[in-house]
Design a protein around this nucleic acid. Sequence first.
DNA 1: TACATAGTGTTATATTATAACAATCTAAAT
DNA 2: ATTTAGATTGTTATAATATAACACTATGTA
Lengths: 135, 135
Amino acid sequence: MKIMHKEHILTKNQQIIFDLIDKSPEPMKAYSILFNVQKKGIKAPLQVYRALDKLVEIGKIHKIESRNAFIACHNSSCQVANATAFSICEICEKVTEISSVGLSKYLANFKDKDGMKYSKYNLEFFGLCKKCTLK
Amino acid sequence: MKIMHKEHILTKNQQIIFDLIDKSPEPMKAYSILFNVQKKGIKAPLQVYRALDKLVEIGKIHKIESRNAFIACHNSSCQVANATAFSICEICEKVTEISSVGLSKYLANFKDKDGMKYSKYNLEFFGLCKKCTLK
DNA sequence: TACATAGTGTTATATTATAACAATCTAAAT
DNA sequence: ATTTAGATTGTTATAATATAACACTATGTA
């Protein structure tokens, strides 16, 4: 399993976009990011998507596939960019990265019926968060 | 956990689109579906998306989120539309629905650190399929 | 019948993402 | 210092994915 080192030095665009996502309490969409960084000179979608691609690749952010949105990796034990799990509230859309050693071990060791292992995966759980459950 | 009954009677558009996806050996994208059913009178994207939404809802098809594509549910034990797992080959893009009692039990019973359970989830494994591994 | 619900057809538009190409930066190797 | 390779940037244009809004039609049921 490939360990992603997080000490990558980010380029200017990458840093601007990472900082924005990192400060956001919720996942951000690409064009929302674009809108927010236009005052910093990033004017075109491609500039955003290129930075996003790189940030995903090095594990600084993750893409929430079912939402087409991006969140910073706050999972200190997640040195692996390609084994991700999230819980998503279907009401308030709050997204939380799950860091469970048990879960990640289970999935990293899971073998399909052909005996095949997959070290890379993305898991999205859906339900109601605590707050929304109480409403 | 909500059991999805598959004896839904499909409408004309739903049936046309389901049949197409069901016959396809690989996941189909919405506009590829549209192209294929235009000769049957389905002319607009919305007609396709509406049928897809319904078919997903009743569990006849699943959406592969990372690919924006749709496959028929061939998992006879999968009466639950909202607990899905797939393996995806990163070279040939072959997608297989995983039906593992162990896996689905593990995930249905998984509790996050707040003790929260999520009966609905989507899991996508990535790797190389057998054929591509041998190349 | 009449009422509610779901589905349809249509046009227009919103949202998400990439192609192509020239220019620039950066690090390492002469 | 100069060259070279690779990654990154800036830019315009366009492709691909998905939904809004509205009038109309079918279907089941009270």
